[in-house]
């Protein structure tokens, strides 16, 4: 449990943990708690926080514990299978505030920055999921990334499959992985500018013309006359 851990910043972490676990039952899965205890023992201070997200363990580690966390998962927890390494940008997307033109059709997200399970410190996070093929459990490991200087150590030495995932993450978010053999474009053509999955990367097609589905708005059957919200 987060309150038992001698974490370095208890106040911030506890607040975010409460938000994250508000939806799930308070008693974590026994396997999840057991796995979390293993991380606590193995990483000590390196473990910032953990949460139980629908039966899956989510741990957040310090940046210098990012690679040790992978080694721990692979060696001690038998997590031999690398599922993915990816990034996330917690910043809310730019929205045109109800004015005409621009992107009006996509779902409206909250405008304040909130963080998911196990919390976060800044805008960017890298998260990875590893699994055990023999014990059938899995762990999601998160690490905060500085916005000004986004870099984390690479996992290629532990899981060779991280190679392409990290290239993708570098391309999509602009996060550098120290120790990666060759960070070059994976999906996009060489001259592509920008990092598409950052929230401030606009989809120009949406700005230029409104969503085609808006042309034929029909009242929904069984709904009110105006066609719902």
């Amino acid at each position: 449990m987060p309150d038992e851990t001698p974490t370095t910043e208890p106040s911030a972490d506890d607040a975010s943990a409460v938000v994250a676990t508000a939806e799930v039952p308070p008693e974590p899965d026994p396997v999840v708690a057991q796995l979390a205890a293993r991380f606590e023992v193995g990483l000590g201070d390196g473990l910032r926080d953990w949460a139980d997200a629908f039966g899956h363990l989510v741990v957040r580690v310090r940046r210098d514990a990012w690679r040790p966390a992978a080694e721990l998962a692979k060696r001690d927890l038998a997590c031999d299978f690398l599922s993915f390494v990816a990034g996330i940008d917690w910043r809310p997307a730019d929205k045109s505030e109800g004015d005409e033109g621009g992107d009006t059709s996509s779902p409206v997200q909250p405008t304040e920055m909130t963080f998911g399970a196990a919390g976060a410190e800044g805008r960017f996070q890298v998260f990875a999921h590893v699994e055990s093929t023999s014990r059938h459990w899995g762990v999601t490991i998160k690490v905060d990334v500085e916005e000004a200087n986004p870099r984390v150590p690479s996992w290629v030495g532990v899981y060779p499959g991280a190679d392409w995932h990290e290239r993708e993450c570098w391309e999509m978010f602009g996060i550098t992985f120290d120790g990666h053999p060759s960070l070059r474009h994976l999906y996009l053509p060489g001259g592509f500018e920008g990092h598409p999955l950052r929230k401030d990367f606009p989809l120009l097609a949406r700005e230029v013309k409104p969503w085609p589905g808006l042309v034929d708005v029909e009242p929904m059957p069984g709904g009110d006359e105006e066609g719902g919200e």
């Binding site: 598409p196 989809l203 097609a205 085609p212």
Partner: peptide
């Protein structure tokens, strides 16, 4: 015309 990816960046 781009189909379901009418707004994609790629």
């Amino acid at each position: 015309c781009g189909g379901p990816y009418w707004d994609s960046y790629s």
